[in-house]
Design a protein around this nucleic acid. Structure first.
Lengths: 333, 333
DNA sequence: TTGAAAGCGGTACCAC
DNA sequence: GTGGTACCGCTTTCAA
């Protein structure tokens, strides 16, 4: 049994394809008797209309794409998950693209996605801010609505949901200040808009607390556990003139903590450590990590809703920024 | 400027759509002069052929789907990543579906995917073994090749790449035995084919070492950190008649370890703990977790290659099973 | 209420 | 080499 098309169904039900189409989509009036006949044939062959043929006329396959640096990063996966659930519920399918942070990879995806006429795109990660410098890339998806999660690309059809990273880190510093910490180090790894905002939040908070010279206390290291370990090494060479280390990422914070412990320092007794992301990792390490929850699920949800609004013609420009929330755990006291 | 189609291009280049199609696909011979003309028009309008229209005749949109319980689980995300990279390199796009482990969700996805005529499907996770009991579900994707990662569904068009979980756990027990352990507990959480194989591996290994009554030492707990903590509680109530705990999942192992430490037990001095998956988590916890590396990247790679083989008409039935490898770390001695 | 027919934007076959 | 044309499988308009 070859796979049936609408003509076969019409023939077997002794009617026209127009009528079959009508019962298929519940559109227009159909004589109950004929409808009955058609439905029987439909069932008999377990007929499924071709989404491709349908897409040919409707100009949409009901699909969206998510571009992310790497789904293996839990923080991104959490957003991908939420967005996928929301859109799959509406009959969309969600294609996932790992760009590795490379703009040219991103461009390659844009090309394919535009040929496949996806309905919308979600860009996860503030790396995609760079796109603003590559109009020849964004030109490839002209007309396709794009939602950037925690990033802004000021171009037509680009929308954003922001996370207030700056304020978030400020609240971390405020908290540490309250706890009596004055000598804080800020450790960042990735160099994205988001990490810059965090860094700025650190500096602003220090200034607000009248702590001078905080600029010297901003240090860069490689991303990840290894990066954190290396950073701990360096920090120890400075003789640890700090009572607290504020990190831009949980995993780096965890690495730093491991490194410090290896060197004989106690966390939090000798030195406090904080991370950012409220990742599952932060509950695995010991002590559990005080971290900034930037609510990836909420972010993903808001991105999905915003994109849906745009696709369905609503003009709901979400301007609210997500406010991270401090999760106080064992690495600070 | 409306988006151009092949007719517009042909008109502007003063030729026929056939010729445009030829230069587009580099098929057949085209007079260099005309080709030149066509290419100019193509460039001028930055023309992109519609993949949907193309799909209409070729019956494929060059897309595959990956079904997984939950991409937020790093172990799955690692496979998704690898498969996505391989297929996107070939011009495919990869849609990701989170079934939450529910067969009916899986069925819903099958329906959509079959309407969209994906070229192939990868099922990640041995939960999908259940499908064998739901022929009405698999009927929905009749004709679409499916590769199951570490699972087997004996039906036409279903292919498998297996991981030898049983042997893997056997090697864990062997190692612990060598280290002098005789009283081992096996802790499992999920109830999948894979977890059953692991459990069987445990029992077989114990039998091979002439340790009787191992069946009583198989305990179930909830999945995850919490589950592990609860399990530790229970185990402590047994008075810990064990010197080692073999776990089916890293995260559960980590939970158990945390729980035991809270109760004053030392790992590995008082009790050894092992996990399974060689997840990043296993490097975060302290001490670092001895764990079975079941090589998700390799598994993903092999699934992708197998699917490609099938799609491209090669009959490369991969029968080799992946052999997990023991990563010895700090939780055993 | 129904059906014929015109697209949708390509591919591929077949004359010329 | 080139162009006409018949599909691919639907939706939609328009007469009947």
């Amino acid at each position: 049994m070859q796979t049936m098309n609408i003509y076969d169904i019409a023939a077997e039900a002794k009617t026209s394809i127009s009528t079959v189409s009508r019962v298929l989509n519940n559109k227009g009036n159909v004589n109950p008797e004929i409808r009955q006949r058609v439905e029987e044939v439909l069932k008999k062959y377990d007929y499924k209309p071709s989404a491709i043929a349908r897409g040919m006329v409707s100009k949409t396959m009901k699909s969206i794409a998510i571009l992310t640096v790497d789904v293996r990063v839990t923080h991104y996966a959490r957003m991908v998950y939420v967005i996928e659930q929301i859109f799959s519920n509406e009959g969309y399918n969600v294609t996932v693209c790992n760009t590795g942070g490379s703009i040219s990879e991103c461009g390659r995806y844009f090309e394919i996605l535009s040929e496949k006429q996806v309905d919308g795109i979600v860009l996860i990660g503030s790396v995609f801010n760079e796109l603003i410098h590559y109009p020849e890339m964004t030109a490839r998806i002209k007309g396709i609505p794009v939602v950037v999660a925690n990033g802004q690309v000021k171009q037509p059809d680009f929308y954003s949901v922001m996370v207030d990273d700056m304020k978030g880190i400020r609240s971390v510093v405020d908290y540490l200040y309250e706890k009596g910490h004055r000598d804080l180090l800020y450790l960042y790894d990735l160099e994205t808009e988001s990490s810059r905002a965090k860094c700025q939040g650190f500096l602003e908070a220090m200034k607000l607390h009248d702590i001078a010279g905080a600029e010297k206390n901003v240090v860069h290291c490689r991303y990840g556990l290894e990066g954190g370990l290396e950073a701990a090494e360096e920090i120890c060479q400075l003789g640890i003139p700090f009572t607290g280390i504020v990190c831009g990422e949980d995993i780096t914070a965890i690495g730093v903590m491991k490194g410090l412990k290896k060197k004989g320092f106690r966390v939090p007794e000798d030195i406090a450590v904080t991370g950012c992301n409220n990742s599952p990792d932060s509950l695995i390490c010991e002590p559990e990590l005080t971290t900034l929850d930037n609510k990836p699920e909420l972010l993903g949800d808001m991105c999905a809703q915003l994109l849906k609004d745009v696709l369905e013609g609503r003009k709901a420009l979400s301007n609210v920024a997500i406010q991270p929330e401090l999760m106080i755990r064992g690495t600070t006291q």
